[in-house]
Simulated scan of single mutants.
Amino acid sequence: MRGMIGEITAALGANGLILRGGFLFPHHDGAPHGVSGAPAKSVLLVGQASAAPWPHFLRWREEQPQAIANPLDNWSRQVIGAVAEKFGARAVSPSDKPYLPFQQWAVRAEGLKPSPLGILMHPQYGLWHAYRGALLFEEEIALPEPCEAIHLCDACVEKPCLKSCPIDAYSTEGFAYQPCLAHVRGANGGPCRTGGCLDRNACPYGTSYRYPAEVQAFHMAAFAGL
């Protein structure tokens, strides 16, 4: 099994993706189906740290029609789907409908907790990581249970992530989606559109993994529908 995990890791790494932990579904109750339609027994999460997949995505994007919708989701599905096919798994995506509980899976797989922005805080990557998909297996894959990760937000007294947005989109009350969207689309939202969320960028952790401005601008444009 370790050999297969190593091969999956290498296959994903060829496109800048990494394994983000996994677990066994308890008694397989409510587990999504695997490749044959039977309930899955194991899940391996796939994601990224920093913007490592970006150059691979850009090369793929150059070969696609300009009007393709949701290109990053499509690229992720294609890459992860090829790995799934090779190893007899079913690939699923966070944007698949009906939605699967990816955030809950991530919490269980890596022992992380949400930051005040809702993004899971990673003890090494900070807020600069993402989950791009998962591999569902109809066999049990033995993985160690994750230890609860140090939650860096607990040690952060100043909470700059709640003080940098010009419209206070994030607060202890949650995320003000519509005001944020209107601001990013509006005349004063240029810094957010070109450099990314000011609150996210204010976080002092994992800064060496921060996405470059062009990557953040891509995600903000997708968020704003621009």
Results as ranks from 00 to 15, higher is better:
G21R: 00
G47T: 04
L19R: 12
F23V: 06
D29T: 12
H27R: 10
A51W: 09
A49S: 15
G30V: 04
A40S: 10
H27S: 12
W54K: 07
P53G: 01
G21S: 03
G21M: 02
G22P: 00
H27G: 10
L44G: 00
P53K: 05
R20D: 04
K41L: 09
H28M: 13
D29C: 12
A40V: 05
L45G: 01
S36P: 08
A51F: 07
S36E: 14
S42W: 00
Q48M: 13
W54A: 04
P39S: 11
Q48S: 13
F23Q: 03
H28V: 12
P32S: 08
S42L: 00
V43K: 01
L24I: 12
P55W: 11
F25G: 03
S36A: 14
P53V: 08
R20C: 05
A40L: 04
G47R: 03
H27W: 09
A49L: 10
L45E: 00
W54N: 03
G30W: 04
A51G: 11
P32Q: 10
H33F: 15
G34A: 09
S36R: 14
L24W: 11
L44V: 06
G47Y: 04
A49Y: 03
Q48H: 11
A49C: 13
G30C: 04
G30M: 02
K41C: 12
A49I: 09
S50E: 07
A52Y: 04
L19I: 14
L44I: 08
G21I: 00
S50D: 09
A38Q: 09
W54Q: 04
W54E: 08
L24F: 09
S36Q: 15
L19K: 07
A52H: 11
P32C: 12
S36M: 13
H27A: 15
L19E: 09
S36I: 10
F25D: 06
L44Q: 02
A40F: 01
V35Q: 14
A49N: 06
A40D: 02
A31M: 06
G37N: 13
K41W: 05
A40N: 01
G47C: 05
L19T: 14
V46F: 05
A52T: 10
L45V: 01
P26N: 13
L19C: 12
V35L: 11
S50I: 09
P39Y: 10
G21Y: 01
G37K: 13
P53N: 11
P26Q: 09
W54I: 03
L24R: 15
S42A: 11
P55C: 07
S42N: 07
P55K: 08
L45R: 00
G22S: 04
A38H: 08
S36G: 14
V46E: 00
P39G: 07
